[in-house]
Every structure is written in structure tokens, then in C-alpha cells.
Design a protein around this nucleic acid. Sequence first.
DNA 1: ATTCCGATGCGCT
DNA 2: GCGCATCGGAATA
Length: 203
Amino acid sequence: MDLRTLLSGEDPVHIARQLIGVELYTHIDGRETAGLITETEAYWAPDDRASHAYGHRRTPRTEPFYARAGTSYVYLCYGIHELFNVITGPQGVPHAVLIRAIEPTLGVPTMLARRHMESLKPQLSRGPGVLSLALGITRAQNILDLLDAESPVQLRAGAGPQVQADVVCTPRIGIDGAGPEWAAKPWRFYRSGTQYVSRLNAF
DNA sequence: ATTCCGATGCGCT
DNA sequence: GCGCATCGGAATA
């Protein structure tokens, strides 16, 4: 199945799982960087209270949710961090997958420089905020078609679909404010055994 | 116009 | 484990 078809699917939780292992590539400020997605979370609006598009909320910020599957959604969190999401689902159905960590595959020196780090360590790109720093992603990359080969930010099908046993499933991070019902949903996924995962001890 | 607060990360204890 | 930076979106008035 091609990526566009996958991302257009009805079930963002399934898509979040399938995105583990897919490559996220950027060509920003004249530098190429990329990594394999190791950690994701699904956001299932309109029902999901943890989503910015809860209840079909439609404002300038949530506009990307109503674009076609494969569109980027980048927003500012805590006034500091740029968080990168992939819009999924049939057009007009505001589903999204938050990318929380990647394992670098291209442009490590560039990423190290952007992170002001000397040597390659997992904290280079684990966590949704620092992942964007490493890849050079900011709100300037909001609302891009991630499946367009001309786009400065792209999703590229990688080593093929992951085996289910290789992926761990847990509740999502940092959404207690959405209430216990939504905070408990096991909609976070990460590659089993990888060092490129945020908050490994959270559960 | 004002207020509230968040899908985080880092440094310090 | 804890405090806090930092700011824009969204709701309220």
C-alpha cells in the first residue's frame, strides 16, 4: 500500500503504528536531514479531547486538520517547542499523528549543529520538540504536502511495514488535561528496543 | 482587552 | 522529582 492510501485511512491509531519505520526527510536551509520514525501518537478528533480539533474545532490554527491526508501540522507548544504532526484520515475528518522521535539516518552533523551537541546520542532526536530542532522544522513548514517529492519536508516509505511484535503500545504523553478517559487510550507507539524514545519510564 | 494554560525540555536538587 | 521558561491560541467579557 502506498503512503497516501495508508494516511487516508479511517483509523489514526493503525496509521500511527504503521508510521513506525517510515523515513522523515527535510531539506531546510540548504541542508538535508532524515531519520526513521521511532515514536508516534494518534489524535482522533472530533471525539478525542486531547486533540486541537476536538469537536471539529475550526480556527486558523486547526486549518491543516481539514486539508488532505499527508499534510503537515506544526504548532508551537509551551511557547517554545515546534511540534510536528501528520494529518491523516479522509478529507475533512480531523485525525493526526504526532511524531515524537526519530533515529537519524542522514545529515547527522547538521542535526548535531542545530542541537548544539558534540556527539551522537539518543537525546539528539527523541522528544517531539527536539526532533523538530534536529530536523530544522518550524511553523514555516506548516501545511506542506509531505508526499510531494518537491516538498522540503517529506515522508518516505522506508524498510517496509513493521512486524507487530516490534512495536510497543502505551498511553499518550502529557495529555492529562484531556481527562482520564482520553489520557488512558493506548495510542502511543514506539519501536521496541530503540534508544530513540522519549520518556521511556513514563509507564 | 484580558485571562488561562498547554501534545515540552532542561537544569538543578 | 521539580520548577520554570515563553508565547500564542482560544475562550471569556
